[in-house]
Design a protein around this nucleic acid. Structure first.
Lengths: 216, 216
DNA sequence: ACTTATTATGAACATTGTTTTTTATTTTGT
DNA sequence: ACAAAATAAAAAACAATGTTCATAATAAGT
């Protein structure tokens, strides 16, 4: 019966999201419920419905936050790790190493936040309603990370080709990661970084040979 | 009140699976329920629980069936379509074309059975219980389809390398397909076959260059 | 201080998966 | 052929879910 107003809606919003993300680190999505979240943060279920609109939209908000965290994980302090083993001579090697590093980090993030990561890609917006602009923008930003590097690697290629190649690269990274994290297709987890490298390295090598025919 | 035994358990099993697959062609998984399936096939909910053990295991049985259908879709009458445009001269070209065709079919199947396809990869076995051997075997068989072609392409490569390459290829095909079917990452559906081809073609070209250094 | 407008709440509701109990049917034993 | 035991399906009961809505408690306005 309406106690003292202790938190703003924004605060409850953040508390709920934090509660869900915390829960999903130790349990499955199916075992979570709106009522559990409400109990955890000390509010009534109907309060969360008031703020988020529905349980599904609460989960979508979580998905947004996970994407933001993922982006930060992919972009934080890149420089020192690239030059860790050997300093690349050419800018092209730098670009390739950068993509490879992102691939490895993508998998690392997915592996450390499996349930949250799955949530992002398995939850779709409610019927007829499209994703929020925040959400869509977060996704687009991920793509730009790769296409940026690609323009450095293929200065002659036109925009459409760059876009396509970035999608092929992300698609592969994403697919390997998805199949890897729940061990559905291969059980040896350790091999996945090598596969990611093989994918990035192999595809870029193939595209290089196809684009600039400097040889043969 | 236990009416006359009209169907065997096996028949009810198949009826339920068929009902689910049919329903998922026109509606979402969240809107489906055990009770709806029961009503649809004219039995009580508890009867389905008796047969399948739980709703989740019913859905896992559906997933198995989808995998079987997928396998059939990938392997049926391959020969005539490969030689459709131009007859390949070398066996290597044939192998590459075969993988590319499978990639396109993989996407085609996923696109025509979106909800069922998603079900296969989003539903995991109940806590602690591993997938049924049928289920696991169906997955392994998919992989063998690619690795078969790869052994033709890279006769010198050892088994471990073949395995790895087949996983990278499938991972990429799967990732692009996943991201493609619910338009989460790119809206132009038509471009997806081209991306799949680029992935297969690009990666194989890169690996060819790396494995047999006949040039440069 | 009194009224008005918020705001979170708790009770109610329909629906879910599952368990348990009942009951109708089939099979078995003699 | 008939009674008894076994079986199979269903109905009823249960706990838990997301969501709605009337209500009580607080905050704001004058």
């Amino acid at each position: 019966m309406a106690r003292r107003k202790e938190h703003t809606h924004g605060e409850i919003h953040d508390m709920a999201i934090k509660s869900v993300m915390q829960y999903l680190h130790i349990a499955s999505l199916e075992s979570l419920s709106l009522r559990k979240v409400a109990t955890d943060i000390g509010y009534a279920p109907s309060t969360l419905i008031n703020i988020f609109g529905s349980y599904q939209q609460l989960l979508l908000s979580v998905s947004e936050q996970v994407l933001i965290d993922l982006f930060e994980h992919l972009t934080s302090s890149t420089s020192d790790e690239i030059n860790h083993n050997h300093s690349p001579i050419h800018a092209t090697e730098q670009a390739q190493a950068s993509i490879e590093l992102m691939a490895h980090r993508y998998y690392q993030f997915a592996n450390e936040h499996r349930v949250c990561f799955k949530l992002v890609f398995e939850l779709s917006a409610p019927e007829g309603v499209s994703l929020s602009s925040n959400h869509q923008q977060a996704i687009d930003t991920l793509f730009s990370l790769v296409s940026e590097q690609l323009t450095a690697l293929f200065p002659k290629a036109d925009h459409a080709e760059i876009i396509m190649m970035s999608r092929v690269l992300w698609g592969g990274i994403h697919g390997l990661t998805c199949l890897g994290i729940d061990g559905k297709l291969f059980t040896d987890q350790t091999a996945l970084p090598a596969m990611l490298s093989s994918h990035v390295h192999g595809y870029l090598l193939g595209m290089t040979q196809e684009k600039d025919l400097s040889c043969c």
